[in-house]
Amino acid sequence: MADIPPLPPDAAPSKYDRLIAKAHTSGPATTIVAHPCDETSLRGALEAGEAGLIVPILVGPDAKIRAVAGQYGLNLDGIEIIDAPHSHAAAAKAVELVREGRGELLMKGSLHTDELMKEVAASATGLRTARRISHVFVMDVPGHAETLFITDAAINIFPDLDAKRDIIQNAIDLWTGVGLGTPKVAILSAVETVTTKIPSTIEAAALCKMAERGQITGGLVEGPLAFDNAIDPEAARIKGIVSPVAGHAQILVVPDLEAGNMLAKNLTFLAHADAAGIVLGARVPIILTSRADSVRTRLASCAVATLYAAARRNAATVAAE
Rank of each mutant, 00 (worst) to 15 (best):
A2M: 14
A2I: 13
D3A: 13
P5F: 09
L7W: 13
P8H: 14
A12H: 14
L19C: 08
L19G: 08
I32D: 01
A34I: 10
A34S: 15
C37H: 05
T40A: 14
L42P: 04
L42N: 06
A45R: 00
L46W: 01
A51M: 06
A51S: 15
L53I: 10
A67D: 14
A69G: 06
L76G: 03
G78C: 11
S87G: 09
S87N: 09
A89E: 09
A91I: 12
A94N: 03
A94P: 08
V98D: 04
R99V: 13
E100P: 06
G101A: 12
E104Q: 14
G109P: 03
L111A: 06
D114M: 08
E119G: 07
A124I: 12
I133E: 00
V136G: 02
F137H: 01
F137C: 06
V138E: 01
D140Y: 07
V141R: 10
T151I: 06
A154C: 10
I157L: 13
F158T: 15
F158M: 12
D160C: 07
L161N: 14
D166K: 04
D166P: 08
L174Q: 07
L174W: 02
G179E: 11
L180T: 05
T182H: 08
K184R: 15
V185G: 03
A190Y: 11
E192I: 00
T193R: 12
T193Q: 09
A204F: 02
M210Q: 12
G218Y: 08
G219Q: 07
L220D: 08
G223F: 00
F227E: 04
N229V: 00
I238D: 09
I241K: 03
V242Y: 04
V245C: 10
A246H: 04
G247I: 01
A249G: 07
I251K: 00
D256C: 13
G260K: 02
M262I: 15
L263M: 14
N266H: 14
N266T: 14
L267K: 05
L270E: 08
L270M: 14
A276V: 05
A282I: 05
R283V: 13
V284A: 03
I287L: 04
L288K: 01
T289M: 13
T289Q: 12
S290T: 10
D293W: 06
D293Y: 07
R296N: 11
A305K: 02
Y308H: 12
A309K: 03
R313E: 11
A316R: 14
V318C: 03
V318I: 14
